[in-house]
Design a binder for these strands. Structure first.
Length: 280
DNA sequence: GTCCAGGTTTTTA
DNA sequence: TAAAAACATGGA
């Protein structure tokens, strides 16, 4: 899948990659991307305070952004220096069920999201439906983010949220999660979470560190580590994954999937959500 | 109208 | 210490 960057100067960067937009942007790891067309080949979203439109063509993928933004931000956000074909092939070799899951959505990539955005987004996700999670996050951005381009808002900083009271934050209608979000904002805004330290920590220590935040338990911590800190061995166990592991992988543990267990998790999570009849 | 959701905290025995 | 209940809200 060659990548083409269509910036102001129509510069091109050709990188062959395993990358499917819908599989990557709508598999439950991020909540701020949406399709613009019925076929779901054109997507738009915001990350890192930047707006992006992307287009999936039969034999290429177009980034509608400047070469500078692509090089400085999106290349890393979409994890483009990693060889997902090699990762996918290795995971497929571990079990027939995992092979099937990787073949169902081979173009999933693990995004490099902002740690604070990942933490607060997955706090919001607890005991909630994905459509409603998207609604709450959308209200969070429209209420407290910065309007930086026609109708698009940045994800509000931890500093901005930390300055709010529960009453003010309640316009996002996240219910009992308001105080959890404020707790997380306090940790990030006031340096109680040292981002560089978490990145360098052994994952077990990092889990413990994140769970100091009120409202962050094992599952949210794991999502934060995988999607926000790119701890690729992270393996979030939610209700879907518990069902999937006991039904499809009765003899497997997360550690059996190796250093890219997080990618395996995402293949399995997406496959399971798309095949609910397996767990009836 | 009822059920329940990419869980976690709080209460209870 | 472990199990159960409570938690807000609204999409299905």
């Amino acid at each position: 899948m060659p990548i083409i960057v269509k910036g102001e100067k129509m510069s091109k960067t050709q990188i062959p990659l395993l990358f499917d937009l819908e599989e990557t942007l709508d598999c439950g790891q991020a909540f701020r991307w949406a399709p613009l067309d019925d076929e779901h080949t054109i997507w738009e979203g915001v990350a890192g305070g930047r707006y992006l439109k992307l287009e999936q063509l039969p034999d290429s993928l177009i980034f509608h952004c400047s070469k500078t933004d692509f090089d400085n931000f999106w290349h890393h956000y979409f994890d483009l220096s990693e060889d997902y074909e090699a990762k996918r092939a290795y995971l497929a070799s571990l079990s027939p069920a995992l092979k099937e899951a990787t073949e169902f959505a081979p173009g999933i990539r693990i995004l490099n999201q902002d740690p604070w955005e990942a933490t607060s987004s997955f706090i919001i996700s607890q005991n909630n439906h994905i459509p409603r999670i998207k609604g709450i996050i959308s209200r969070l951005c429209e209420s407290f983010g910065e309007l930086f381009e026609n109708r698009h808002y940045s994800f509000p900083s931890a500093e901005v949220i930390a300055a709010l009271g529960e009453e003010e934050l309640s316009v996002i209608r996240a219910g009992f999660r308001h105080r959890y979000i404020l707790s997380a904002a306090d940790y990030f805004a006031n340096g109680k979470i040292k981002i560089e330290r978490i990145k360098e920590m052994p994952i077990e220590d990092a889990r413990h560190e994140l769970m100091q935040i009120c409202g962050v338990g094992p599952k949210v911590a794991e999502c934060t580590l995988l999607f926000g800190f790119h701890k690729t061995e992270g393996f979030p166990m939610d209700t879907w994954m518990k069902k999937a592991m006991s039904t499809l992988f009765p003899d497997k543990q997360p550690a059996d999937f190796g250093k890219d267990a997080g990618l395996a998790q995402q293949y399995i999570f997406h496959y399971s959500r798309m095949h609910p009849e397996l767990f009836k």
